[in-house]
Amino acid sequence: MNYSELKQIFRELKATSPRDDLTAHIIFTEDGFATKYPLLSRTYRISSDNKAFWPNMGGYSIFGYCLDVTSNQGVRLDYYMAEERDINGWKVEDCYILEQMRDTAAIPNLTRMEQDDGTVCYFFGDTCIRVRESEDNEKIRLEPVSGDQTACGEWVELPIDRVHGYCTLLERHLNKLGG
């Protein structure tokens, strides 16, 4: 989807269901940066719980968290985005809502399988996500390794940004089960 569609969905959600939140990934184009960055370094996770999406909010901000954890965390994206304030700024290539990705409704019925190489595979619906599992402050953390989905009867590799998205949703589900 394009950024204006995402923004409209987030604003409608906050106007009608202020307690609910959605999460999205925004991918910026390569040409918006002086240096060539890989996909994860150009992809930021945002929440609908940013001031820019609330009706009648006194401020206006959009904070994002880079999927490449060695990069910018908690960046004030609205300052850098061409679609917001800086017409010469970062241009949105693509964006999508994590909760609307394929097979997310099947996550509660997941199957977990430990692999010989120390990774763990989570199967739900027609999706398989391979991760490295760890625990941090009694919370399960998933480090994305790879992912696949069936399409027209064949397994297709998922882009790593989508694998990150599924890991975010899986962590929420698993940590909710754990208390």
Rank of each mutant, 00 (worst) to 15 (best):
Y3E: 00
S4C: 10
E5H: 05
K7L: 09
Q8H: 08
Q8S: 06
E12K: 12
E12D: 15
L13Y: 08
R19M: 10
D21W: 09
D21S: 14
L22K: 09
L22H: 03
L22A: 06
L22N: 13
T23R: 08
H25V: 11
I27F: 14
T29S: 14
D31A: 07
D31R: 12
G32P: 06
A34V: 13
K36W: 00
R42L: 00
Y44P: 11
S47A: 09
S47T: 11
S48I: 02
D49L: 05
N50C: 07
K51H: 13
F53H: 08
P55G: 06
M57S: 14
G58E: 04
G59S: 15
I62G: 03
G64H: 11
G64R: 09
Y65Q: 08
C66H: 04
L67I: 12
T70L: 15
N72K: 15
N72S: 14
Q73A: 02
R76E: 10
R76K: 09
L77F: 07
L77P: 03
Y79S: 10
Y80F: 10
Y80T: 01
A82I: 07
E84R: 10
I87W: 10
N88Y: 13
G89C: 09
K91V: 14
K91W: 09
K91H: 12
K91Y: 06
E93Y: 15
D94A: 13
C95E: 11
C95D: 00
Y96S: 07
I97F: 11
E99M: 12
Q100H: 02
A105L: 10
P108G: 05
P108M: 03
N109R: 08
T111M: 09
E114M: 04
E114A: 13
D116E: 15
D116Y: 13
D117I: 01
G118I: 03
G125T: 01
D126G: 15
D126A: 08
C128H: 08
C128Q: 10
C128D: 00
I129H: 05
I129D: 05
I129N: 04
R130V: 03
V131A: 03
R132T: 02
E133G: 00
S134N: 15
N137Q: 05
E138I: 03
K139H: 14
K139M: 09
I140H: 02
V145H: 07
V145R: 05
V145K: 05
S146K: 04
S146E: 12
G147H: 01
D148R: 13
D148F: 10
Q149T: 14
T150S: 05
T150W: 00
T150C: 00
T150A: 00
E154R: 06
W155N: 00
W155K: 08
V156C: 12
L158Q: 01
P159W: 01
R162A: 01
V163F: 06
V163E: 02
H164R: 02
H164V: 05
C167P: 00
L170R: 00
E171A: 05
E171V: 05
R172W: 01
R172V: 00
R172T: 02
R172S: 02
H173N: 10
H173P: 02
L174D: 06
K176N: 06
K176T: 07
L177C: 13
